[in-house]
């Protein structure tokens, strides 16, 4: 979609951010002048055509900014005299958020894997392994015959036998890799491996808790997050908290004849990874749904109904905007 600009008393500009658009059609539904149109959703979602989900008709667009204010994904950016209306006190503000509490997070990376938008990055610093194992081994070079049996058996690949110089082979242990499993000691044909067990030497097996500490950082890229709730759902320690742009429900029409595996348009377009085809039928997991309505727009059978009971958009001061936004309450028909 081209950027639309108008210079007058105010300079107004509407620009499209392709990477953020999910093809939900909220903007096309809400546009009072029908200046926005959806492209072929399913072929775009499948990557069969390289087009934007939304196209604009610059002759019809009044540059009112309602579309940008209503887009929960920030895919439309509207500026007045170069100020984004998102930062303007007179304009509506979305209240949905997503965060990961660093205090609670254990850096397991489950959210990073589950996030359908690749919006989460988890980095972690692990303890030094040698400080967590219960002992260490040593090889007596005098006794060792450099047969390489220990090297071959070591599950941690901590033993290296260097036979480059056949007359003076060298064997070494990487203490950072050794897990003190003692397989080498048991297998050594000449008992060249000595083990020093911390438990035996000191009577108790204790690890300094500080040595076992894991530090890290979990970070949500706001620009990519669509508040689907996957991180919140999958987090084993409830460190992720997500609030959604809409509250309501998603259902199918009563006599819906879902074509399932033949079609799967809903599954392909869903930005939240909330839809799957199970036993030949579309199944939506409401926990991950943001009620954006892209699936309802994409379904060729018009079988999906979105009911939005609450919009988490505050500071809607204009009555005409409020009236127009109320149209978002029910989506499904094209």
């Amino acid at each position: 979609m081209d950027t639309l600009v108008r210079d007058g008393d105010q300079k107004r500009s509407l620009s499209f951010r392709k990477d953020k658009c999910v093809g939900c059609g909220i903007c096309t539904d809400i546009c009072p002048t029908e200046a926005l149109k959806l492209g072929p959703l399913v072929p775009i979602a499948r990557g069969l055509v390289d087009m934007d989900y939304v196209n604009s008709d610059k002759d019809n667009c009044a540059l009112c900014g309602l579309c940008a204010a209503s887009c929960p994904f920030d895919a439309l950016e509207f500026t007045i005299n170069d100020v984004n209306i998102k930062d303007h006190e007179a304009y509506p503000q979305w209240k949905h958020t997503a965060s990961i509490d660093d205090e609670t997070c254990i850096y397991c990376k489950a959210c990073e894997t589950a996030c359908p938008r690749d919006a989460i990055t988890v980095t972690r610093d692990l303890p030094i392994r040698s400080k967590l194992v219960s002992g260490e081994i040593e090889i007596d070079e005098e006794t060792c015959i450099h047969c390489g049996i220990c090297e071959e058996l070591c599950p941690a690949e901590a033993i290296t036998l260097n036979k480059e110089d056949i007359t003076a082979p060298e064997i070494s242990i990487d203490k950072d890799k050794c897990v003190y499993c003692l397989v080498c000691k048991r297998a050594c044909p000449v008992t060249a491996i000595k083990a020093a067990c911390r438990t035996c030497s000191y009577g108790v097996y204790e690890i300094d808790p500080a040595d076992a500490e894991i530090s890290g950082n979990a970070f949500i890229v706001d620009d990519q997050c669509i508040n689907c709730g996957w991180c919140q759902e999958i987090c084993p320690v409830d460190a992720a908290e997500v609030s959604k742009p809409f509250e309501g429900e998603i259902t199918y029409i009563d006599d819906f004849e879902c074509k399932g595996d033949s079609c799967h348009a809903c599954m392909d377009i869903c930005p939240c990874n909330a839809i799957s085809i199970v036993d030949g039928k579309s199944v939506i997991e409401p926990k991950f749904c943001v009620l954006c309505g892209a699936c309802a727009k994409a379904c060729p059978q018009n079988g999906i109904v979105i009911k939005r009971e609450k919009i988490n958009l505050e500071n809607v001061r204009s009555k005409s905007w409020k009236k127009q936004m109320d149209k978002l309450a029910e989506a499904g028909s094209k």
Partner: peptide, 12 residues
């Protein structure tokens, strides 16, 4: 044809 109608909505 399985009547999924995807072709109908995709035809330019």
């Amino acid at each position: 044809c399985d009547d999924c109608d995807i072709c109908i909505q995709s035809c330019p």
